[in-house]
């Protein structure tokens, strides 16, 4: 059996933990408990064991903890579709990742698709796709596109 390390990265409170928990344990909670350091979960996808590193979000005080990225076979970039600023900072986070571990396979999750105040337009999404990323409009609450997101990253790490 092959094991793959995958990191969840993005601004704080975008739903990295929520997406992971929805996928691994099929649970969702409205309460926000910020992740400190990193939380690790494992899940089996077909013949691959995915070791998911749910890394604490970036904020003005603490930059993304780059050493957690070492050895990652793939990265899930997560942004909050109701906060444009978190989408814009994806580029910056990506350059941190690339600096640390190089061009690893990557997928983008624009999360909280279930909320009313969605503010990502198609142009923005297209510009992300132009960079060669697969973009998913996910909802950790409803579970929409969560499976596809993780299956895609596994698939890409195998290429």
């Amino acid at each position: 059996m092959i094991k793959k390390k995958v990191c969840m990265v993005g601004e704080f409170s975008v739903g990295k933990t929520s997406l992971t928990q929805k996928f691994v344990n099929n649970v969702f909670s409205e309460t926000y408990l910020t992740t400190i350091g990193v939380k690790i979960d494992t899940v089996q996808i077909e013949d691959t064991k995915l070791v998911i590193w749910d890394i604490a979000g970036r904020d003005s005080l603490s930059p993304i903890n780059a050493s957690y990225l070492v050895g990652a076979a793939g990265v899930v970039l997560v942004a909050d579709g109701t906060r444009l600023q978190t989408v814009e900072s994806i580029s910056e986070i990506w350059s941190t990742v690339r600096e640390k571990i190089g061009e690893v396979p990557c997928v983008v999750a624009l999360n909280k698709a279930d909320l009313e105040d969605w503010c990502v337009d198609n142009t923005t999404i297209e510009s992300l796709r132009d960079r060669g990323w697969d973009v998913f409009e996910t909802s950790a609450k409803d579970g929409v596109m969560v499976e596809s997101l993780f299956h895609k990253i596994v698939e890409k790490t195998k290429e």
């Binding site: 094991k3 390390k5 070791v51 590193w53 070492v70 050895g71 990652a72 076979a73």
Partner: peptide
Amino acid sequence: IDQNTGMA
């Protein structure tokens, strides 16, 4: 443990 990936 693989020092790099942290995997067993």
